[in-house]
Write a protein that binds this DNA or RNA. Sequence first.
DNA 1: CTTATAGTCAAGCGATCGTCTAAATCGGCG
DNA 2: CGCCGATTTAGACGATCGCTTGACTATAAG
Lengths: 226, 226
Amino acid sequence: MAAPKGGTRERILNAAEQLFAQRGYDGASTRAIVAKSGDTIGSVNYHFGSKDKLLAEVIRRRWDEIVEARRECYAAARREYGGAPPVEAVVEAIVAPYLERAMCGGRGWRSYALLQARVLYSEKSYTRNLKALSEPIAREFIGWLAESLPGADMRDLGYAYQFMIGAMVESCAEIEVNRISRITDGLCDAADYGQVKARLLAFISGGIRATVAAGANLSVESLKSA
Amino acid sequence: MAAPKGGTRERILNAAEQLFAQRGYDGASTRAIVAKSGDTIGSVNYHFGSKDKLLAEVIRRRWDEIVEARRECYAAARREYGGAPPVEAVVEAIVAPYLERAMCGGRGWRSYALLQARVLYSEKSYTRNLKALSEPIAREFIGWLAESLPGADMRDLGYAYQFMIGAMVESCAEIEVNRISRITDGLCDAADYGQVKARLLAFISGGIRATVAAGANLSVESLKSA
DNA sequence: CTTATAGTCAAGCGATCGTCTAAATCGGCG
DNA sequence: CGCCGATTTAGACGATCGCTTGACTATAAG
């Protein structure tokens, strides 16, 4: 395959991003990556040192941008509401920057979203990077939710955050596969940003509110049984 | 490693289930599998023909049981309510049989749940099996939801179903990793069936209701703009 | 021009991959 | 016992893996 545009380093990163997403870390060989990018194996180890570090760089490359966009979106919501915004705005700040890039950001972002879903459910050492990046951020996001839901039990918010991530990751990972389109005979389109965003935000926000309400009931029941 | 109990076929299936879940299909070599089960490579190809077919059998082995349990749970809810049960009962029929086995069914079921999450986000040929199994079932489940939410737009239900699967798969895949426990300083436990089930059912049911409501608003807006 | 630096390249290293072959082993039956 | 089908085994096949090596090219400074 002829060499795509860009410097060697970016060519390799783009090819690796796409193949890691499609085939997984072990399924995408260094040779397949350089065959796609039009480079040679030696260049990979010259620029990145190893396959592990290549994956780490693929992930790191786009991570900061998403986190920054989320923080900006949240800060804008805070300014608009003069303090803690409603849950819906917090959810949008966390979900929309990710979803928007995955669906409207071109092939690179689409691959990145699927790659994140893959890495999320891996247990190998090369996932340490993403986990180390994501866990402090998760604390920050749960803090946002807590401030917008005063009185909510932190346990409910913790679980609800996990459910939110699941729904969001699934939505991003389904973009290329589009299972839901086949299941609904084309009625739904997993790649339609407007359609998915409106419903995903409604689903998560409603789900969080319902979880907090159910958690309050659980607490009442535990008091009654005591 | 000494051979665990059971026949050769089951020993290999159990070892493959665990290693496929931990390392992924490409990351778990046939040699590593038989090293864990205490058998030899030849036995794998004698009993299963190939590594592909071994994975297919690992998935198929537990799939039918879950689907059957879901149908029985739904049928019981229909009997109880004398027709279409409320959304909460439908969600419980779909989620609980899966979640309960993943959390209370021993190591085998725990590995199976993680393996499903991995396969769900793979694009390789060996995932065709699970996809061929899951898509007709998805139609059936969405039909259940539709009957319990008369008047709901089928598009809303399709998307909501996708979000539900995401939240459920994430919850099952997190059992071993337990990220949420670290994030919340031990306040949450992703492996606590009672805690997770109550909140996951509340999250999904509330999310579905909110999605349907938001979809209705979207339709109204599209009418207004027309 | 020489020299230094950065980058790219083909070739090959040992290790491991999935699969196959043929011999060894086992259990039940005449 | 001998025999036979079922099962298990060790060993080897070619292919491919991640990574390294040493030579080659390009560019710019002295």
